[in-house]
Amino acid sequence: MLITELKSKEEILSLAGEKAFIINCLGCKEIYFPEKEAKELQKELSDAGRVTGILTTDYICNPDNMKLRLQAYLEQIEEADTVLVFSCGVGVQTVADFLEDKKVCAACDTIRLPGFQGVTPTEVDCGQCGECYLNLTGGICPITACSKSLVNGPCGGTKDGKCEVDPSMECGWERIYRRLEKLGRLDVLRFPTQMHDFSTDEVTKECKES
């Protein structure tokens, strides 16, 4: 868990679908996690009968740890149509990789914290861009998985599924397309034109000051 802030309440309520399983990661909570606001929101969902279970744990960025923690909740996860993850982008991606047949959504945006890159070294990377795209991209980060950090689909530089810049790297958008195809959720790609907001560094400043 890196520095996060909650997405808007309306967005989270809509992401939750009819039945959601909720995962909270408090792994690096000493850094920053909007715990109180998250709990209030989750209670509201729970009271409305829209939650199949809540797992509050730590370091879901560590795949082995995360799988172990999730084992006891597989039925509740099965029952849910969405797994809503309150964590940094690394956590969401690690869960989405594991539950590859499940709709996994990010409830938070991860904000850049200079000098801090997360605790568990894995291949999954979060750009800490402050504007999490994982809900549009099947839980694969276009900021870190695409050489150009494109947010509106692939460029024309894919050859045999590989990136033109680094032939040992899979095209991030090809991965996103295949993931959403497997989930039967290609319609998600019809999102409106995205323009990344690079002014989020200001938020970092505010967080550090508070």
Binding site: N152, G153, P154, G156, T158, K159, D160, G161, C171, W173, E174, Y177, E181, L186, L189, R190, P192, T193
Partner: peptide, 16 residues
Amino acid sequence: SDSVDAQLVKMEKKIE
């Protein structure tokens, strides 16, 4: 392209 499916998605996004 060998990923024509993804190209068509992008084409549609460009039109939109």
